[in-house]
């Protein structure tokens, strides 16, 4: 592992070849600040159907032991899919304006 992320690498510091030599490095890139609407998850109302989890394009619904534990605002872009598909009987996710 030779990648650096805290500063731009020089050409001599690049990993040999034309590749990113570790997986999932995008986790260092926070797309959460793209958001203008914020999903707010209500643990009381959630029925843990996981529909929001499987549909999230940004892998931003946190799950532990088959249960939803919250939303990862580091990556959530605020698209609102989760709120739109949350079963009406639960309505556990609400979209609110992102307060900057």
């Amino acid at each position: 592992m030779s990648m650096k992320f805290d500063k731009l690498m020089t050409w001599k510091e690049l990993p040999a070849g034309c590749l990113i030599d570790e997986p999932s490095t995008s986790l260092r890139f926070k797309t959460g600040d793209w958001r203008s609407m914020r999903p707010v998850w209500d643990s009381e109302k959630c029925i843990h159907c996981l529909f929001c989890w499987i549909s999230c394009p940004d892998s931003a619904i946190k799950v532990e032991n088959e249960k939803i534990t919250g939303i990862d605002y580091n990556y959530c872009k605020g698209c609102g899919i989760c709120a739109s598909i949350c079963p009406p009987k639960a309505s556990a996710i609400e979209m609110i304006r992102e307060e900057k």
Partner: peptide, 12 residues
């Protein structure tokens, strides 16, 4: 696991 043939922007 590696990503072969990534995209570079102007910075790389």
């Amino acid at each position: 696991p590696k990503t072969y043939g990534p995209l570079d922007l102007q910075d790389y």
